[in-house]
């Protein structure tokens, strides 16, 4: 037993189902068979995006609770916390991208699919307030299955209360770049996700308001295979660009550079 590796060496690709060896995934965790990017942990995202060791975590103001006594919710929270080693589906802090100091938020799809609840909403408002206060550009990695049903109307009201802070942020002239990653749906996409100055998406990410299954059931429509993919949204004019994660850090740096070029005080 002693020679068993701590982490499994093989994992399957969510898209093509093939078994891929850790070494085959490579630095950017892209499937060598179908080319789809693997969903990342918060740590992998931080490592891939920000200057080494530059991320400084900010603690979340509140902790999640099962206030409605919703069946199995308390268990789900505990399991998600054990699995991700995070308190909730968002991690916030400050970090550097090519020496630009930014406020950063990274949502976590491995924590109950990044669903938006009281704590996640508060975390997003917290990092927006921090960006406002310190006048830092805000870079937000969005991923969310939508509003978290287990907190009912309280999850829904994160949408308008986040938007109120985001509107102040944007009005104050602070730069806000959102990167939509797999998946970005419902309560997240219909609030802060698309409301930033720039909206980029990672390749192959699923992005939309209603889920495919719901659309098929309610409208009876046949949906194209590529429907709600980042590439499909780009074709329909809804994104600034689709960026492969291999190039994402460079693109973010370029965008930040372009907003400070000519800045006398920069």
């Amino acid at each position: 037993m002693s020679e068993m590796p701590e982490q499994a060496l093989w994992s399957s690709c969510k898209y093509c189902g093939r078994h891929v060896h850790t070494e085959q995934w490579g630095l950017f965790l892209r499937c060598p068979f179908c080319g789809f990017p693997k969903r990342l942990t918060v740590e992998q995202r931080i490592e891939m995006t920000f200057d080494p060791d530059s991320f400084q975590k900010i603690d979340l103001n509140i902790k999640s609770k099962d206030q409605l006594h919703f069946k199995k919710y308390a268990d789900k929270l505990t399991k998600a916390q054990q699995k991700t080693k995070h308190d909730e589906a968002i991690t916030i802090g400050t970090a550097k991208i090519g020496n630009h100091l930014v406020a950063a938020g990274i949502m976590d799809n491995q924590f109950m699919v990044g669903t938006l609840n009281t704590t996640v909403g508060e975390g997003i408002r917290q990092i927006m307030e921090a960006a406002l206060e310190q006048r830092l550009p805000l870079v937000l990695f969005v991923t969310s299955g939508g509003a978290r049903m287990q907190e009912g109307i309280f999850s829904l009201l994160q949408m308008n209360t986040i938007l109120a802070v985001q509107e102040r942020l944007l009005d104050a002239g602070i730069l806000n770049i959102n990167i939509l990653t797999d998946p970005t749906m419902g309560g997240a996409s219909a609030s802060f996700a698309f409301n930033s100055d720039y909206v980029l998406a990672e390749d192959h990410a699923q992005i939309g308001f209603s889920g495919k299954r719901v659309i098929e059931q309610t409208s009876g429509e046949q949906l194209p295979d590529e429907f709600q993919s980042a590439e499909y949204l780009l074709e329909h004019g809804q994104l600034d660009d689709v960026i492969q994660r291999e190039k994402l850090k460079d693109v973010l740096q370029q965008l930040l550079d372009l907003h400070t070029a000519g800045d006398q005080n920069g």
């Binding site: 509107e167 996700a193 698309f194």
Partner: peptide, 24 residues
């Protein structure tokens, strides 16, 4: 809100976000 191919293609997410933000 409507769940359909057409609404998705026309930016249902963004339109709802803009309306919520504006009303606030």
């Amino acid at each position: 809100a409507d769940a359909s191919l057409e609404s998705e293609n026309e930016g249902q997410s963004l339109m709802i976000a803009k309306m919520i933000a504006k009303m606030g």
